[in-house]
Design a protein around this nucleic acid. Sequence first.
DNA 1: ACGCCGACGTTATACGTAAAACCCCGGCGG
DNA 2: CCGCCGGGGTTTTACGTATAACGTCGGCGT
Lengths: 339, 339
Amino acid sequence: MTEQPARPTSRDVARAAGVSQATVSLVLGDKWRGRVSERTAGLVRDAAHALEYRPNLAARSLRLGTTRTALLVVPALTNEFFARVYTGAAEVAAEHGFGVVLYPSPAGVGPARDPFASARAALDGVIASSMATQALDAIRGADLPLVMLDSDPDAPGAAARVNLDIADGIRQVTEHLLALGHRRLLHLASAISSWTFDIRATALAEAVRNVPDAVVRTVSAPLDVGAGREATERALSAPGPRPTALVCDDDILAAGACKAVRRLGLRVPEDISVTGFDDLALATAIEPELTTVSLPAERVGERGMSALLAVLDGRRPEPGDLPVSLVVRASTAPPPRDA
Amino acid sequence: MTEQPARPTSRDVARAAGVSQATVSLVLGDKWRGRVSERTAGLVRDAAHALEYRPNLAARSLRLGTTRTALLVVPALTNEFFARVYTGAAEVAAEHGFGVVLYPSPAGVGPARDPFASARAALDGVIASSMATQALDAIRGADLPLVMLDSDPDAPGAAARVNLDIADGIRQVTEHLLALGHRRLLHLASAISSWTFDIRATALAEAVRNVPDAVVRTVSAPLDVGAGREATERALSAPGPRPTALVCDDDILAAGACKAVRRLGLRVPEDISVTGFDDLALATAIEPELTTVSLPAERVGERGMSALLAVLDGRRPEPGDLPVSLVVRASTAPPPRDA
DNA sequence: ACGCCGACGTTATACGTAAAACCCCGGCGG
DNA sequence: CCGCCGGGGTTTTACGTATAACGTCGGCGT
């Protein structure tokens, strides 16, 4: 269209600097110590700068057999948590001259197309959220370095893992509620992956273990506000003594839960306490502001990318889970006296 | 690490099929009508399938001088609206064998690094939200096809534009409020780009033009809940008759506004009506559920990508703004009688 | 009987980069 | 005086693909 003025190549730079193309490549690749004089290197850099030379990435990838591109597989970008993970991953990728391309799950794009297969030859590695279960099998077949996020340590095929200390988060909320005096808890779980469910459920069970009169019920719901509201409404109108606190696996569910509580003519937190998980923007947008577990989402992305880079370098990725922290806000309070 | 078994090349396929590499390229590129026999083509395809051949994208890009990759520039992915735009763009891109890579604004990544410059040689075009103003200048210098989203039609350098009919959205909310009987409106604007501000402000002014006793005040705030709350709180406690309705430029601000209203001991919508913009998930997560303007965010991305593809093909992009629609929920009601 | 053509492929080349292999020359140790 | 070494480059090649240019061969029209 606009008649591109033909982007300059390394050969153009060489011509301008009065050297050979190889020299340009050496200088610009910082591989010239002792092979090229300081003066010549300067000439090359000046010429490159003057021509606004940018190396052709396709050519470089072809030559090097590497693309400096990682694939990030997430269930959905519209989930703030994963958007933040991307941000973190992209940040450290950029620091190392890498790019991050997204594969927002098989649900996001049509099932027929397979961005992964077509991108496969152009990738150096994959970072995958374990929640995107469907995509994982395809990836495993590709013998690419794979970093898994929040995954079952027993699941195979990962060169590295970065996990959040989810169990500790659940433990913290639970202890917070127990300390406030709550004894009847309802666990509102998001039906995402069986592993994340299990780890939360057992952490919760463990936390109430030494509180003799504590009792926990569990219901699960798809991850959206409406579903959370409905599930909660159903659970709270069930016969038997009503729970006084709701432990939700996600702020989104917690928001739904709050709505349900109020629909039933009750108040949060006076009648029923509600806790969330993730500490999304949503947590402080609703009323009352949610007591929730804050997750370092960006850090997950950063660690994921760092781990991938480490694997690619043959180094050992940094071990250990990422810590989470309880944020107490206004959605939790002692249970009503008559309860 | 894992000793990759050396991905098969087109030459490997050729060897397996007993033909030359050129023939493989012809067959797999669907350019063989009348140049290769049906039988040979079959052999080639079988061999390719058997070897699980995937073309090397870097090599193809180098040869073709095209990367089938577009850059999407957005202010922040954590904003649900832009995450949805990405989703739409990625969808139609995939349908045409294109990829979409993100540049989440200069604020997201450090100022020193310039992903755009380094990616520049590897891009076929750019789709940019006008809100990412800082990045635009750099892009213009790159003489790449540029599609602008929600941009001033007078701004230069765009090969195509896709705009939402924002003005109509504002008109619709305003008329809704006027019909309910509101006369004193407060416009809570998000200080994003001067163009989007202007278009909204004038649309609002126009909508109240023929309602003689209607009066509009404007305040603006950064785009987050807390800022929205503070700005609203200040504006509502100012001297003079209090507005009965708040027209917010974004659901996020509207959420803040609702909190502010309640802090002042008033109710939404009985004392003050609040409207949002965007129809994010947030709109139905808070209470009361927001009356807001629903934007087809995915469509923006789809149209943006389609337009870019059209430009690259030398075709004319589809003209016209995308329609928006008012969604009336529970945050608007007639003003109190004594007002 | 010859030329020509169409069907079916093949050979050769270019894309821009990185790096291995090579080359030249001045100085220095033996 | 010769060989060798190291500094400072250059020549050449390979990466995998797409495609232009080139062959070959059988048949058919004249």
